[in-house]
């Protein structure tokens, strides 16, 4: 039987209460949201805490997708299922729908949250790659109010984030730019497994149809779920074309740092990083074309 080591269970119902309790208990305490990453780690005794603070009651306060001009805000307690079902999110960032289809399974998606996924900071975690791809920023609450950090600054390394002992991630913000779209692809061995490799892309075109900006985020191919600046540099100002995607794929394959494990060899993962990068860039632009071309007929590109 796998059970976590003993701990004190606490429950809070507001962000302020959570921060105050964390401040009092220090690093002996940990927040638990959906629990589908943390509880398995506690069962394996890879993580042990004296106090576990249940923040599921914060769903009322932090479970939302809000679209504003130029910005989408998602509350940290928004569950995977809600992300997938949000029409606003699907319209602005198709990459979310692509990724949510492959994250764990529908039952886990009923519990798991955006904030929990990001704070777990597993290098194979899909939503970290999605947020990196979309140039998201994270709102962190502490005793002295809130601060906002970029995904690059949020993600310190495997299982490490910028969130301090007496802090809580409350919201993730996504800039919305015109003439953009996005896509996500993953290769997994079976439903619910961790990705062998995942890739997300977001592309924005200018009025002349040239690439204004492009971002690619990879998961499971290195300690950091990071964006690849080289791809943005290579693509900006260019006209979308197959050979451009091939070049971006080469950059992705070179920039990543996969290890051989039971999910595949490093060489195979590099191959996937290249191929998936090409596919998600290609699909992102096809989606922009479908919108700008005016033939939005509900057909999935």
């Amino acid at each position: 039987m796998q059970v976590p080591a003993p701990f004190e269970y606490r429950r809070v119902s507001t962000v302020d209460e959570a921060v105050a309790l964390l401040y009092r208990l220090g690093d002996t305490a940990r927040l638990v949201a959906g629990g589908h990453s943390l509880l398995p780690m506690m069962k394996l005794r890879l993580a042990n805490f004296e106090y576990l603070i249940d923040i599921n009651e914060l769903h009322d306060e932090l479970g939302y997708v809000r679209a504003e001009p130029g910005l989408i805000r998602i509350g940290a307690m928004t569950r995977h299922r809600e992300l997938r079902e949000s029409a606003e999110l699907a319209a602005a960032f198709p990459v979310f729908g692509d990724a949510e289809r492959v994250i764990a399974d529908p039952l886990v998606r009923n519990r798991g949250t955006l904030g929990g996924s990001l704070c777990q900071a597993d290098p194979s975690e899909d939503l970290s790659a999605v947020c990196t791809t979309l140039d998201a920023s994270c709102v962190i609450h502490g005793m002295d109010g809130e601060r906002v950090v970029s995904m690059e600054d949020f993600h310190r390394g495997p299982y490490e984030t910028a969130v301090g002992d007496a802090e809580i991630l409350t919201e993730v913000r996504f800039p919305v730019r015109p003439r953009g779209s996005s896509a996500y692809e993953t290769v997994e061995r079976r439903a619910g497994d961790w990705a062998v490799v995942s890739a997300g892309a977001a592309v924005w075109l200018d009025e002349a149809g040239l690439i204004a900006d492009a971002r690619v985020g990879l998961a499971a191919v290195g300690p950091h779920t990071a964006g690849i600046p080289g791809i943005a540099e290579a693509l900006r100002g260019q006209r979308p074309a197959e050979e451009l995607w091939a070049r971006a794929g080469d950059i992705a394959a070179e920039a990543c740092d996969p290890v051989t494990d039971r999910r595949g060899s490093a060489a195979y993962k590099r191959h996937l990083a290249r191929e998936l990068t090409m596919r998600v860039l290609r699909r992102s632009v096809a989606r922009i074309d479908a919108h700008i071309g005016g033939h939005i007929d509900g057909q999935e590109v």
């Binding site: 269970y9 429950r11 638990v32 629990g35 589908h36 509880l39 398995p40 576990l52 249940d54 599921n56 299922r81 529908p106 039952l107 886990v108 009923n110 519990r111």
Partner: peptide, 19 residues
């Protein structure tokens, strides 16, 4: 181990009874 929690199916091996 799937049961419903507030009307949604969840895996009860990964939910604390306290939750």
């Amino acid at each position: 181990c799937v049961v419903w929690l507030d009307g949604e199916p969840v895996k009860s091996c990964t939910v604390l009874a306290a939750m």
